[in-house]
Design a protein around this nucleic acid. Structure first.
Length: 322
DNA sequence: CATCAGGGCCCTG
DNA sequence: CAGGGCCCTGAT
C-alpha cells in the first residue's frame, strides 16, 4: 500500500511532556517487520483509525514544559476537515496528550528512592500505539513463549496477512484487519507455527467481524467492568486483560498480578534481592502509588530497559531470556 | 538424542 | 479451584 498524501499539523500536549519516553518504549522488543521507527526527537508508526490505515510521523518541536509536537499524517487519499479532526482526537486519546500528571508527579516527588527516575522521565505517557484488535494479536503471541519465539510468530503473521506500507521512501508494516482472516482456516494459521494460538486468533477475529467487541464502548467503562468484558474474550485471561487495561484503556491502577519472570525483575529493581513474594511487591507498590501503581511501575520498568541500551546489566539479561 | 519450561489460557473433574 | 494439556523452540 502506498500513502502518497500528507498533511501536517501541530499539537500541544499537556505540560510536562517527555517526547522520547512517550514514543519509544525500550522494553517492547522489536520484530523484524517493523511497525514503528524511532530516533531522538522523531518517530514513525503505522496507525489504524477504524478501518483506515495511516502513517504517523511525529517530531518534537517543544520542550518538557512548553510541549509541542508536529504530526505529519500520510494517507492514501486526501482528508477532509471532519476526518482530520477525528484522527486528531484519536491521537490525543491514544498518546494521552491531554492527561494531567500533576497528582502522580506529586506522589513521585515523595519517593526518596525512585525520585531521580521519575524526574528523568517526567511527562512520559503510557501510550496505546495500536488498536484493541492489534494489541490482542500482540498479547496472544506473547503468551507462553519466549521473546524470540514471539518475534518469529508476529513476523510470520505480518508477512502473510499484514500490510506493507510505503510512504516518503520509507517502509513500515501494519497488522491486518480482522476481516482479512475471515476465510483463513485455523490450519493455515497453524502452519505459521503459532501453535494453539491459531484458535484464539481465529475466534477473536470472528468476534470482531461480527461486531461483538466495541473498543469505543469499552473505553467508557469502569476498570472492573472493562476487565470483565475483556476476560470474556476467547484467549484472554487475567494477565492479558491486565496488559490491555493499561495499554489500550489507560487504567493506571492495574498492578494486581505479577508473572514469575516479572517478579524476578521487580525483586531486583525494588528490593535488590533475588526473589520477593509477589504479594509483598503488589502491596508495597499499591501503598505508595495507589491508583497510579501501574504507571509508577511503567516508569521504573522503562528506565531499566533504557539503561540496558547503554550498559550491561547481567542480572537483567539473564531474566529476559531472548 | 531426550526432556523441559517458557512474557497463559482453556477445559475438565 | 487445582491441574493437565497445548504448539513450537532453544536451553540443558
Amino acid at each position: 500500500m502506498k500513502l502518497d498524501y500528507k498533511k501536517s499539523f501541530f499539537l500541544c500536549p499537556k505540560s510536562p511532556f517527555h517526547f522520547d519516553g512517550t514514543f519509544y518504549k525500550p522494553s517492547h522488543f522489536p520484530n523484524k517487520l517493523k511497525m514503528e521507527e524511532w530516533e531522538p526527537g522523531k518517530y514513525w508508526q503505522t496507525f489504524r483509525v477504524d478501518k483506515e490505515l495511516f502513517v504517523l510521523q511525529v517530531e518534537n518541536k517543544g520542550t518538557t514544559f512548553k510541549p509541542k509536537i508536529k504530526i505529519t499524517l500520510y494517507s492514501q487519499k486526501p482528508l477532509n476537515k471532519k476526518e482530520l479532526e477525528k484522527i486528531k482526537q484519536e491521537i490525543i486519546w491514544r498518546f494521552e496528550l491531554d492527561i494531567d500528571l500533576k497528582e502522580f508527579n506529586k506522589l513521585a516527588k515523595k519517593d526518596r528512592r525512585f525520585y531521580p527516575v521519575f524526574k528523568k522521565w517526567m511527562g512520559m505517557r503510557n501510550v496505546s500505539k495500536n488498536t484493541l484488535y492489534e494489541l490482542l494479536i500482540i498479547a496472544i503471541v506473547l503468551q507462553n513463549a519466549t521473546v524470540r519465539r514471539s518475534q518469529q510468530m508476529l513476523d510470520a503473521l505480518l508477512k502473510k496477512f499484514g500490510t506493507k506500507v510505503v510512504f516518503d521512501k520509507k517502509t513500515l508494516w501494519a497488522i491486518w484487519l480482522p476481516e482479512r482472516l475471515k476465510n483463513v482456516s485455523e490450519k493455515e494459521l497453524r502452519d505459521l507455527k503459532i501453535g494453539y494460538r491459531a484458535k484464539f486468533i481465529k475466534r477473536l477475529s470472528q468476534d470482531f467481524i461480527e461486531g461483538k467487541i466495541d473498543e469505543k464502548h469499552l473505553r467508557n467503562l469502569e476498570k472492573e467492568a472493562c476487565k470483565q468484558e475483556l476476560i470474556k474474550l476467547y484467549g484472554v485471561g487475567p494477565e492479558t486483560a491486565r496488559i490491555l487495561l493499561f495499554e489500550a484503556f489507560h487504567h493506571f491502577d492495574t498492578f494486581d498480578h505479577i508473572a514469575p519472570w516479572q517478579q524476578k525483575i521487580y525483586s531486583r529493581l525494588f528490593y535488590g534481592k533475588k526473589l520477593v513474594s509477589a504479594e509483598k511487591i503488589c502491596k508495597d507498590i499499591l501503598k505508595q502509588y495507589g491508583k497510579y501503581s501501574m504507571l509508577a511501575v511503567h516508569y521504573i520498568w522503562e528506565d531499566i530497559f533504557w539503561r540496558r541500551r547503554n550498559e550491561n546489566i547481567p542480572w537483567l539479561e539473564k531474566e529476559i531470556r531472548l
